[in-house]
């Protein structure tokens, strides 16, 4: 059974239908990419899954539990973390405070400290800057902080929205390497990216979105060599 399954999802912004009935699945241990152009609905899907936007129709299940109507603040307690588009770190809070908020729903003080140590190991730069306000970090560092903050909840699945957006090529490489590390350590990853080439290079499977619908799905390697995908998303 799939870890996360979305069935016949429909989402509206007022009168405008953003998601027009789509279904997808993420299995435990997989890295699944959602790719597509700007405005295809990728971010909307993630926001709906984590309860920030209500859906009109459809069903979202996580580990067999219906979470379609679950409020946003409950989602993280089920083991799902979301690294939102544009990082959205708390700019006027320190790096340390941001990370601590990532573990907001956890109560085991000692284990939280252990997770924090792990995060600092994975992102040494965050430890160097732990007392700095998050708003003073560079874009790449903020992305690391957003990821670290999400990992502080010890999620079973992590949803990442455009982690490479606006970053220098060096940081893009680094961020994708970290995503691979996270996946290798056993966390399932659902990745939304405009950088389709990079996304497909680390994903197991992928779905291609166009204006609120899935137009193509399959093995990432197969999609990478698909003529229509190459033409539309890989710039070849």
């Amino acid at each position: 059974m799939a870890m996360l399954s979305v069935k016949d999802l429909q989402v509206y912004y007022g009168m405008i239908q953003a998601i027009k009935g789509l279904s997808f699945e993420v299995n435990e241990g997989e890295v699944v990419a959602l790719i597509g152009a700007n405005g295809a609905g990728k971010t909307t899907i993630l926001h709906t899954v984590t309860g920030l936007i209500p859906s009109k129709e459809g069903k979202i299940e996580f580990q067999g539990k219906d979470i379609t109507k679950a409020p946003g603040h409950k989602i993280v307690t089920y083991g799902m973390a979301h690294v939102p588009e544009g990082r959205r770190v708390f700019a006027n809070l320190s790096v340390y405070e941001n990370l601590k908020l990532g573990a907001y729903t956890r109560n085991d003080k000692k284990e939280i400290e252990d997770t924090l140590k792990m995060i600092y190991q994975r992102f040494p730069r965050l430890e160097e800057r732990k007392n700095q306000m998050a708003g003073t970090l560079s874009g790449g560092e903020q992305q690391m902080l957003a990821m670290g903050r999400a990992l502080m909840s010890q999620p079973k699945i992590i949803l990442m929205d455009e982690p490479s957006m606006g970053l220098s090529p060096i940081f893009v490489e680094e961020i994708f390497k970290i995503i691979q590390d996270v996946a290798a350590s056993g966390t399932t990853v659902l990745l939304v990216e405009q950088n389709a080439k990079k996304a497909l290079s680390i994903a197991n499977r992928a779905y291609v979105l166009e204006t609120g619908k899935i137009v193509l799905e399959g093995d990432a390697n197969v999609l990478m060599n698909d003529e229509s995908v190459k033409k539309a998303y890989l710039g070849e």
Binding site: R88, F90, L101
Partner: peptide, 23 residues
């Protein structure tokens, strides 16, 4: 913890909810 949750909500409600904070 409640105080930093307050500051988080005042900065970004959506991101605060993602942390599990009841806005």
């Amino acid at each position: 913890k409640a105080g930093s949750a307050m500051r988080a909500v005042s900065e970004d409600r959506g991101a605060a909810a993602l942390m599990g904070i009841n806005v």
